[in-house]
Write a protein that binds this DNA or RNA. Sequence first.
DNA 1: GATGAATGAGATTTCATTCAT
DNA 2: CATGAATGAAATCTCATTCAT
Lengths: 218, 218, 218, 218
Amino acid sequence: MSNPILDAILAQGLTKWKTEKQRRVVETSIKMFAEKGYANTSTAEIARAAGVSEGTIFKHFGTKDHLLLSIIVPFVNDFFPVMAKEVLNDTLSENTKSFEQFLRDLLKNRVAFITENKEIFQVFIKEVIYREELKRELVPYFTKLVPPLFTNIVEQFKESGELIDLPADRILKSLLTLLGGFFVSRFLLMENYIISENEIEDVVQFVMNGLSKNQTAE
Amino acid sequence: MSNPILDAILAQGLTKWKTEKQRRVVETSIKMFAEKGYANTSTAEIARAAGVSEGTIFKHFGTKDHLLLSIIVPFVNDFFPVMAKEVLNDTLSENTKSFEQFLRDLLKNRVAFITENKEIFQVFIKEVIYREELKRELVPYFTKLVPPLFTNIVEQFKESGELIDLPADRILKSLLTLLGGFFVSRFLLMENYIISENEIEDVVQFVMNGLSKNQTAE
Amino acid sequence: MSNPILDAILAQGLTKWKTEKQRRVVETSIKMFAEKGYANTSTAEIARAAGVSEGTIFKHFGTKDHLLLSIIVPFVNDFFPVMAKEVLNDTLSENTKSFEQFLRDLLKNRVAFITENKEIFQVFIKEVIYREELKRELVPYFTKLVPPLFTNIVEQFKESGELIDLPADRILKSLLTLLGGFFVSRFLLMENYIISENEIEDVVQFVMNGLSKNQTAE
Amino acid sequence: MSNPILDAILAQGLTKWKTEKQRRVVETSIKMFAEKGYANTSTAEIARAAGVSEGTIFKHFGTKDHLLLSIIVPFVNDFFPVMAKEVLNDTLSENTKSFEQFLRDLLKNRVAFITENKEIFQVFIKEVIYREELKRELVPYFTKLVPPLFTNIVEQFKESGELIDLPADRILKSLLTLLGGFFVSRFLLMENYIISENEIEDVVQFVMNGLSKNQTAE
DNA sequence: GATGAATGAGATTTCATTCAT
DNA sequence: CATGAATGAAATCTCATTCAT
């Protein structure tokens, strides 16, 4: 039942790094893990690039693995909960008149967030995909956490008649697959790529109307 | 300008593995690279699991890196060209009456292919995402190769009035993003997952009509 | 219930070292562990003194700890079983007329054996005393194994009237304490010390008659 | 000719530890050294367990080695001199009528002392046996110091006719070997073992009369 | 006096690769 | 073609010790 990585995730408070050198280690690690991957980055390289001794890294983070978690955990703690509360509820209850608008706001918000944390996002995705143990522990965490966040919204707009009359889980599967592919392709495959408002709008339109022509007219 | 990996890709003929032991090495490597990633699999482990000596591996493959390429290259050589010729042209000229039908056939075909080569697909994706040098060399190869394959088809169905009136590159971006997300999520994140006909149909419908309700009516 | 070190002890067959280099590693380790102790001997030192690379050590022995066991285990397997069968039974049934004679023979035999394996004996004792985990696993092994070997003999000579009329366990406790102290002091504290026939005879006399004067006569 | 450890032993006065934190460091070190040995206990562990900073340890003790000496030296200074004066002389001149009684008193006294200082005794023995340099410096110290303490007594009781007519050094060798084995086995191998009056009496009887039956009779 | 961040030397361990058989 | 012992470079990690605060 015990899940050490999730335990670590939960245990990690909001404590930010105590010293300048620790901060430099984390920042450097993010950059190097994002570029070459965790397994291809040595602690010696990190130490050199961060201008600290290797001892310092291990003094503070214990193991290289825990250094990785020290990067991933706060990101995970920020990414989904924030999505849950700030984005979903706030957006939904006050401003949003339509699912289309909700989707547009969500996309803009998450694109902005990931653009700001692009390298951590890369590290996170790469390691979740690459390392079986991380996948085993984190993927269920998401698949349990994320769909419920959206189910209510989808149901609501199905009732209002805006969304197609399919079971919410099937709607979400398509939607999340597209959004996942969107983020991964844009932030992992196309580096240095900047997502424009127009592109977000294309995605929104694609989600809403698909590719066939005469959806609306006549 | 020289590109060693592409060179290797092109140089590699259709030669299949000569000896039983070589075959076992390749098969074992695929399994282990798929599960733990290239960087986390040692040649000693492969040798043990394949029941050969480490010497044998290096006799045949020279380096561990070349062993990886010996796995990836034939896969790449199969995946896209086959897609190009067999699927696209054949499908298009003879059977296909609509883009929707083309998309359905393409998806079924590629789902079948990847299901058969699931582990190699995992190795391929993981390493392309994980290792900068591989990404730098292979991603442009795809972005140059793949869109042209589809441009004609998209244009054709735009003219026939089935597809929305957007520039082909924007249509393709949305489409390929979705399809990429579909394959990656189904084959990398959800292991042991079997894709049903129904699910393919859901994707097709989503691509064609999106999520909003009143696509057709009134 | 499982006991990894005992498992290793039992698993270890009579296989002697396969290669010359491995033999040199073991021999060098014994010398260095005996002199400076396991914890104060680095694998780098061993490699240098044995004329092999560090890699070779770890290729064959896996860990430094397993190298230690590779030394201790065959020693343990030789020391006690041999004592049990060859020394006790053979000596007892055929040659021995008295407990005194049995004790004399036993002492000579074991002194000869340990003199031949002095350094391994030192390593063994030092590590059993020094490291809690080894003690926890090996001490019960001895306290279960050794006393039964002697109980019969003691009982037999109690009946024949040669030995004092005390419970065998109390006799053995005194006897084994003395013998243990004898071996440890002579082989661990006094190095380069050679045990003479006379000294063995003194021990035998001490065991039999103690230090008080008027044991026998008048 | 200079002997740093002996120098330290002599230099160390009766100064007890000045601050609470120093006391905690020493106490914690004794426990941890006794359990895992000096070499397997890090100063970081000691600091954590003692609730002080690592800096504090080095502030007071300079080096880890000196911390060990700060434990061993007062013990050595207590153990033998006290034995010399209080036990030997006092006991001898006033109360003791026989060697047997002297031995009994000595054993009771030392058993009580070591029982009280069991962990320090363990540290002391372990490190003397384990580390060559300590052995080289401390063993001669004992072999020079201890036998003279007993020679007079042995000679006296040889003259009085109680003890066997052997050279004192041979008598002492047997006796000290037994006593050493007794203390080491009881306090190092059998932990949590409590030595009873009966057991002491058994040892005394063994020393005086040995194991053979008809010492006295007829 | 006390702290604990930082260090660097060195320890153990891993691993792709070589090569004699 | 096949082996597996051997290597050495590099990786992760440990730890006594220093020092600014």
